[in-house]
């Protein structure tokens, strides 16, 4: 489960200019909300509306979950990360630092 790790990253860098947004892909609203409450997630969580989510998926071509993107201050997508394994957050954090300082 990658979201608690994102919560940690968000808490660490929110005052340094990082915004975290998670978009839920499933249509299982109850399960998603239960998880969000259980894990105490406080960053921006957006819901899959059927039509809109299709647009988002088509735009970002996400076919595997989780997939994460890092967007720089100029609005460019500078990093993509597919899947999540133990230890991946280190690489993600490194890239975040590069963009925050860039």
């Amino acid at each position: 489960m990658e979201l608690p790790r994102l919560e940690k990253i968000w808490q660490k860098y929110r005052d340094k200019g990082l915004v975290v947004v998670a978009i839920e892909r499933s249509r299982d609203r109850d399960r998603a909300q239960k998880l969000i409450a259980e894990k105490g997630l406080t960053f921006m969580l957006l819901e899959n509306g059927e039509g809109d989510a299709e647009v988002v998926r088509r735009v970002f071509k996400v076919g595997t979950f989780p997939t994460s993107f890092l967007i720089d201050r100029n609005g460019r997508v500078m990093f993509a990360h597919v899947g999540f394994r133990e230890g991946d957050e280190e690489r993600l954090e490194e890239e975040i630092l590069t963009l925050l300082h860039g």
Partner: peptide, 14 residues
């Protein structure tokens, strides 16, 4: 939401 800041955007699946 982003307001010109660095953003981490995640697509997830419960």
């Amino acid at each position: 939401v982003r307001r010109g800041e660095v953003a981490l955007l995640t697509f997830w699946f419960p």
